[in-house]
Design a protein around this nucleic acid. Structure first.
Length: 608
DNA sequence: TGAAACATGAGGTCCACG
DNA sequence: CGTGGACCTCATGTTTCA
């Protein structure tokens, strides 16, 4: 063990000496942009006299700053060599070097261990009724095959040049590809007219088909049929993309509003839009409510709006509802008059939410709200680096140097760290996530879910107070309760919001791919003694018109279709597969559209 | 082997400034 | 009106650990 460390030390020493020489030989041009550094340097070491000397070269000044802070000169040289003149990076590197040295077996950092114990390892207290574990969930390992199939289908379609075909021929071709007899398709086109939309044609054929063979439902078989269903669906989607894109080319792109309050929030006395006119196609039933990240790549919200009946998205930052920011866009056809917030109002600042942190909060950390809660948290090692940086700066009169302040504050913002002790920051605990997101305490706890998965599920959830505010208009409309189709349910943000609003949940059909999340929702459903029925599906891609029709027939239709599709190919946090709406997961948006379309058409056919 | 911990950066928006 | 910097983000892939 010790040999390894000593080996590394030797390496360090060698590099340091070389680096030192190199640094001294670096021409001034390398550090030509000195003005910024000079300003910072002046502020930083003003109490020590040296900074006023304008003859000191830039890099030396930078080194001097760090020497004043107590870092060894060799390490400073190495850090500058590796990171250039960026002070933040240099400081981070220095702290990392220091930590690497101190992590040797002799000295175990004692404080870093304090983060764990607050989570009790005793999860056995919860006694869950396992009756709900009906074996309806199947192994979904085949789904990647399905994806591949759809992707290649899409690719081949995109590669094909269908521009020579007329609109009618195109429609006919793809209706045929979707499995409709050419004869029926052509009749539908004749009857509905040349301007008929694709969904209208399908509606017509569905109605005709239902009229003919009311009692015949195709048996639900396994993989092959599902795969071909995905194939057809994708074709359908692609065609719609083309049709819709053609129609709208010169419209204004969607901009994010400032302040991000949508059509109004309860807590700000800011001008709110109190009325809006929905496009006729958009008007329910059913009501629908769609959510995703506001800061998606360019054009994504334009596309989503086009697919959801050209409704203008409502962009809202949850910082107007609670102590954490969450910038999201919502496309919905709900009324926007007479909304009301959930009571009690949640804490709206960090200090209100975490009173104990006030004592340790430095005056120069000016945060009053947390940033967006993500699916993972800052590391213990980072918290340790910050503690050491702060401790090292204690000899400064009142506040650490601006450079250190900036480093610490940047990391605190990035990882949503709280001050929980002297010089001590900590990431949020899981129950704090729950509280900030508006869920009951222990909502995600127990039942076999890991801590990592709890953070992930909570990071992907609705902010309940925000969504509840938008849904509050349903309370007067459905005094006897509602039927909800909840897509991408996650841990049940929509259900919790409706429940907390006091809207009875008669029938909830929940579609959620992750078993841990389905279990969480099922547990909540049982623990809150819901009177209604909770039916769950695991894969939205398997949910077809027959399923929906059966459910609609059995309880009379859905009042609300609600859900937020995966954002992981849209969010800026993703540096690997930020592929936009065509990304592997985020393309499930089109399934949301498909389901809304289907519910809409099935329900309108029933009314006729 | 699975869970936990860790390291990793681009893309967009906003705003001050020249 | 362009530019540069500050700021923010429902994450992913790899390594470490138990």
């Amino acid at each position: 063990m010790d040999n390894n460390f000593s080996g590394e030390d030797n390496d360090n020493i060698d590099w340091d000496t070389e680096d030192e020489l190199e640094i001294q030989e670096i021409p001034d041009a390398t550090f030509s942009s000195c003005t910024n550094l000079r300003n910072v340097g002046h502020n930083t070491v003003s109490g020590h006299g040296e900074a006023s000397s304008s003859s000191v070269p830039c890099q030396s000044k930078l080194i001097q700053q760090f020497i004043v802070m107590g870092f060894p000169e060799e390490s400073i040289a190495k850090a500058i060599e590796q990171n250039g003149e960026n002070e933040g990076l240099v400081l981070d590197a220095l702290l990392t070097f220091k930590q690497a040295l101190e992590d040797s077996p002799e000295e175990q950092p004692s404080t870093s261990a304090q983060m764990e114990p607050s989570i009790s390892s005793d999860d056995s207290s919860s006694q869950y009724n396992e009756n709900f574990l009906v074996d309806v969930y199947e192994d979904d390992s085949w789904s990647s095959d399905s994806d591949n199939c759809m992707n290649s289908a899409k690719q081949s379609y995109l590669n094909d040049d269908n521009s020579s075909l007329s609109e009618n021929e195109n429609s006919l071709l793809f209706l045929a590809n979707m499995g409709y007899p050419a004869e029926e398709a052509s009749i539908a086109m004749e009857r509905c007219g040349p301007e008929a939309s694709f969904s209208e044609l399908i509606d017509f054929m569905c109605a005709a088909q239902m009229a003919r063979e009311e009692d015949v439902y195709l048996p639900e078989d396994e993989k092959p049929k599902l795969n071909s269903g995905g194939y057809k669906r994708k074709m359908y989607n692609e065609l719609r993309v083309r049709k819709k894109q053609k129609a709208i080319t010169d419209e204004e792109p969607i901009h994010l509003p400032r302040p991000m309050i949508g059509f109004g929030v309860p807590t700000e006395s800011l001008p709110a839009i109190v009325q809006r006119t929905l496009p006729e196609q958009a008007i329910g039933p059913p009501f629908f409510y769609y959510e995703n990240v506001a800061l998606a790549p360019k054009g994504v919200w334009d596309t989503m709006s086009r697919f959801l009946y050209d409704i203008e998205p409502e962009f809202v930052d949850s910082k107007y509802f609670c102590a954490t920011a969450r910038k999201r866009g919502y496309i919905h056809n709900l009324p926007i008059e007479d909304r009301f917030p959930l009571l009690p109002l949640p804490p709206r600042t960090i200090h209100e939410a975490f009173p104990l942190t006030k004592k340790w909060w430095p005056s120069w950390d000016t945060r009053t709200k947390l940033n967006c809660l993500q699916t993972s948290i800052g590391s213990a090692r980072l918290a340790d680096r910050i503690r050491k940086a702060m401790k090292a700066m204690e000899n400064f009169d009142d506040e650490p140097p601006l450079m250190v302040q900036k480093y610490v504050l940047d990391e605190c913002r990035k990882w949503n760290l709280l001050w929980v002790g002297r010089n001590k920051v900590s990431p949020l605990e899981t129950d704090e996530f729950e509280m900030l997101m508006g869920f009951p305490r222990n909502h995600t706890r127990g039942g076999g879910i890991s801590r990592t998965d709890r953070y992930k599920s909570l990071g992907n959830a609705f902010q309940v107070d925000t969504v509840a505010y938008h849904l509050s208009v349903l309370k007067d409309l459905y005094p006897n309760g509602i039927n909800v189709l909840s897509l991408f349910s996650g841990i049940g943000g929509a259900e919790v919001a409706l429940y907390r609003l006091g809207i009875p949940l008669n029938n909830v059909v929940s579609v959620e791919i992750a078993e841990v999340n389905r279990n969480i929702l099922r547990s909540w459903w049982e623990q809150t003694n819901q009177k209604g029925n909770l039916i769950d599906f695991n894969d939205i891609q398997q949910l077809n018109g027959d399923d929906l029709e059966q459910m609609i027939n059995s309880f009379g239709g859905f009042d609300l279709v609600i859900g937020g599709s995966p954002c992981n190919n849209l969010t800026g946090s993703n540096r690997v597969t930020r592929d936009g709406l065509e990304g592997k997961d985020s393309s499930l948006f089109y399934d949301y559209v498909r389901i809304v379309d289907l519910v809409k058409s099935i329900m309108s056919n029933r009314r006729v």
